[in-house]
Nucleic acid binder design. Structure first.
Lengths: 142, 142
DNA sequence: ATATCAAATAAGAATCATTCTCAAATAAAA
DNA sequence: TTTTATTTGAGAATGATTCTTATTTGATAT
């Protein structure tokens, strides 16, 4: 049903090696290094296919363009830096969310998004990081 | 600084009379009844102004286009029924959200969205409600 | 009431992300 | 290797949002 092409392998690798959710543009830029001239449409098509196959999941952040990450990272939430616009993975969750809904409402899942300024941007070196796209929360935070 | 025009009054009225967050298109459509030929750009400009004046707030739901509601409803979150797609206002919040981010990240605000099935749809009468668009949580839940 | 000036308007052009189209290239199957 | 279905790249098409510009309108001071 679905062919395995060089472009798709590259796209999946890019997503797996990034420590944070990536936008289609991020992906295209990264993938260009391994597969020159890859088209944006190809990225979008591959993303759609991978989502259907449940290999990746979309991360839809209000106020930012949608990005994507591998589906095997388990339950977690996200932080978006208001300055560099990058999205970071968070670990952990909170309890008591179901209590916000009336008793006769059935809560199936939830999303939490934190907005603020990441460590890089707080330190006033946000611009120098802007070019980098594959740093994850942990490498930034250690 | 900011003029009060007929178009803006109409737009604000539409938002206040709706019991749920509206999209710019919703607003334009509603406002057309009171102010024929109102432009979409005008709606967007008015929304931007109202947001700057903190008269309304954007409601950014992951996976849905952004919508807007009056700001005087206080801090609250939203519930989306997976069946009828309506957005409900929730009351209350949870603590400990800042703890999800690393210490050197500055958390400024947050969004919580619960997904599930509302009381109406649980009772198997979701379809009959689908047409209604201006019911809020309280009228449904009382 | 009128003149003045700043702000807002409508319409359409511009922009940006995403999807679509189609001929050419490529992967899998025969 | 030949056949057939799928994927690709390039650019056109779409849809949402923002911008531009000439014109209109609201507020303010006569």
């Amino acid at each position: 049903m679905s062919y395995s092409t060089r472009q798709r392998e590259v796209i999946l690798n890019v997503l797996r090696q990034a420590g944070r959710p990536l936008t289609p543009q991020d992906i295209r830029q990264q993938a260009s290094q391994d597969s020159a001239g890859i088209g944006l449409a190809t990225v979008y098509r591959a993303l759609k296919t991978f989502i259907a196959e449940e290999v990746i999941v979309p991360v839809e952040i209000p106020g930012a363009s949608p990005c994507y990450e591998p589906a095997d990272r388990g339950h977690h939430h996200h932080f978006i830096c208001q300055q560099c616009q990058r999205v970071f993975d968070l670990t952990g969750c909170v309890h008591g969310l179901e209590a916000l809904a009336p008793q006769d409402f059935c809560v199936q899942r939830h999303e939490i998004v934190l907005y603020g300024v990441c460590a890089c941007c707080t330190e006033g070196r946000g611009s120098e990081v802007e070019a980098s796209t594959d740093q994850d929360l942990h490498s930034l935070h250690k």
